[in-house]
């Protein structure tokens, strides 16, 4: 890619620790296991995977809401993998987070104005008047206008779509360079999803914001991001320009994912979808080698279940991690 690099993640690992029972031992949920990704300034990257595949964990680890176990996060030329205190606070100012559940993401006892002022107060940005001005500007940016109608309301007085606009406004109010949006529209009504995504797109273009969209919905992604990474069971398995991945999927899992999604069509009811049975593996004891092998029809015995597949480049920008493709291209 040509643009200026904003984020470079290499070999990132984040395991959740859980304890079973009072005296039970520790278990590790390998939610993010050796993930590499890059994001350019002003670019929109999508990370697609089923629930439990580790998308949220990945997003939160990049935001340093979780402490990485291993790997490196280089942001804007700085290593932010293990920064603390002042540096971490500065990093928080330069990043924004949009969560899945807009109502849950807003403190219910604060007015919209208080909510948007919080990040400014925390980072001691501007005088009182300047802060208010910034709040107005952010609300205009997310088209909650006339601002006077919204600024003194409380979250529960807004519809889901409006709440999510507030969340977006809050995520950009400190002028960040990177925003991670974790399923920003999956809790919203289908009819407002497109509206919210269009809004994010326009903000992203206007401010040259780097956005990572986390989603399980391939079809929406198609219209709102330039690159896609497919995640399965804690690992990225395929990546490349959006259209290329959707129209020329290589990894068996990506193919199934695309097969599983219907488009509105009256003929759907007469055909069955070609999808693998079973469910994603437990991340406590994930399969060795390729994590998809127990469900994969192309699985090569003695290889896929033993060795983890590495990068294979379909072309300059499109890569996949699959032994079958590696062996048969």
């Amino acid at each position: 890619m040509s643009g200026e690099r904003l984020l470079e993640v290499t070999g990132l690992k984040m395991y959740h620790v859980i304890r079973k029972g009072l005296f039970g031992g520790k278990f590790y949920i390998k939610a993010v296991d050796n993930v590499d990704l890059t994001l350019d300034r002003g670019e929109a990257l999508a990370i697609i995977g089923e629930s439990g595949s580790g998308k949220t964990t990945l997003g939160k680890t990049i935001l340093r809401l979780y402490e990485p176990l291993d790997g490196k996060i280089i942001f804007d030329g700085r290593d932010v993998t293990h920064i603390r205190r002042g540096e971490l606070k500065k990093y928080r100012r330069e990043t924004g987070f949009v969560q899945q559940d807009p109502y849950g993401a807003l403190p219910p006892f604060m007015s919209i104005r208080q909510i948007l002022e919080e990040p400014l107060k925390i980072h001691k940005i501007g005088t009182k008047e300047e802060r208010l001005e910034k709040v107005y500007k952010a609300l205009e940016e997310v088209r909650l206008t006339p601002v006077e109608d919204f600024i003194n309301k409380y979250p529960h007085m807004l519809s889901g779509g409006q709440q999510q606009r507030v969340v977006i406004a809050r995520s950009i109010i400190t002028d960040p360079k990177l925003v991670i949006a974790d399923e920003p529209v999956s809790m919203l009504d289908a009819s407002v999803r497109v509206e919210i995504l269009r809004l994010m797109e326009s903000i992203q273009k206007k401010y040259k914001l780097g956005i990572i969209y986390i989603s399980h919905d391939l079809s929406t992604t198609k219209y709102f991001s330039s690159r896609i990474n497919i995640m399965y069971a804690g690992k990225l398995v395929e990546g490349g320009p959006t259209r290329e991945v959707i129209y020329n999927p290589i990894h068996p899992y990506t193919r199934y994912l695309i097969n599983a999604l219907p488009d509105p069509d009256a003929n759907n009811r007469f055909v069955k979808r070609d999808v693998p049975p079973g469910e994603p593996p437990s991340l406590i004891n994930p399969p060795t080698g390729c994590r998809f092998y127990p469900r994969c029809p192309l699985f090569i015995k003695g290889l896929c279940d033993v060795k983890e597949p590495g990068y294979t480049y379909v072309n300059e920008n499109h890569w996949v991690k699959c032994w079958y493709y590696e062996e048969n291209r």
Partner: peptide, 10 residues
């Protein structure tokens, strides 16, 4: 999930 949904629909 998408795949589970597709399976149940099948």
């Amino acid at each position: 999930d998408v795949l589970t949904q597709a399976n149940i629909m099948n």
